[in-house]
Amino acid sequence: MEHITLSFPATRTVSGKALAGVVGSGDMEVLFTAAEGETLTIDITTSVDNSEQRWQALFGRLAALGSLPAGQMLIHDFGATPGVARIRIEQVFEEVSHA
């Protein structure tokens, strides 16, 4: 298991909490808690070793395509594909955007 912590500039604020996915499902879960500030902090626990560059690239693309909300994100990854990871992350962002 590998633990990765990333931080990205946040350009919007939201409120609430959101959960997408289930660890027991065999791919991943994402938990997001909105916070005041200008930073999105991501804590990732993954079964895929040496994957920090992949996570950096994924969040870099998300930041380039839209605005990231301020808050704390916890990701429990058990080998999800990048496509599944992006869907789960976008699901929690969408949920707190409508809270």
Rank of each mutant, 00 (worst) to 15 (best):
E95F: 06
V14R: 15
P69D: 03
D77I: 06
G24Q: 12
D27K: 15
V84A: 08
Q56L: 07
V48F: 03
V14M: 15
L58Y: 06
V14F: 14
I75G: 02
I87T: 12
D27H: 15
W55E: 00
L62I: 07
N50T: 09
E95I: 13
L31A: 14
E38A: 15
G66E: 05
A85D: 00
P9L: 08
D49I: 07
H76E: 06
F8P: 02
L65K: 10
T81G: 13
T39E: 12
G66K: 03
R12L: 11
G60Y: 02
A10D: 00
M1S: 14
T41G: 07
S7F: 09
G16F: 06
G24C: 14
R54I: 05
S15N: 09
V14E: 15
G16Q: 10
S25A: 13
R86H: 04
H76Q: 11
A64P: 01
A20G: 01
T46H: 02
T45F: 10
D49V: 09
G21I: 03
S51R: 00
P82R: 02
V22C: 14
T41K: 11
R88T: 01
A99P: 01
D43F: 11
T5F: 10
V48Q: 04
G24Y: 08
L65R: 07
D77E: 07
F59M: 06
G60Q: 10
I89C: 01
E36F: 11
K17Y: 15
E2M: 14
T33P: 05
A18F: 04
A35D: 10
D77F: 08
G79L: 11
G71H: 00
A20V: 03
I44P: 01
L62N: 01
A80T: 00
M1F: 09
E36R: 13
V22I: 14
D77Q: 07
S97I: 02
D27T: 15
L6C: 09
A85W: 01
S7M: 11
I44L: 07
G24M: 06
L58M: 12
Q72A: 12
R86S: 10
P69L: 04
P69F: 02
M28L: 15
L68C: 03
G37D: 05
L19P: 06
G26T: 10
I89H: 00
V22Q: 12
E90A: 10
V23P: 08
G37C: 08
S47R: 13
G26P: 03
M1K: 11
W55G: 03
H98L: 13
L58G: 05
I4D: 05
R61Q: 09
T81M: 10
A85N: 02
S97D: 08
M73S: 02
T81H: 11
V22E: 12
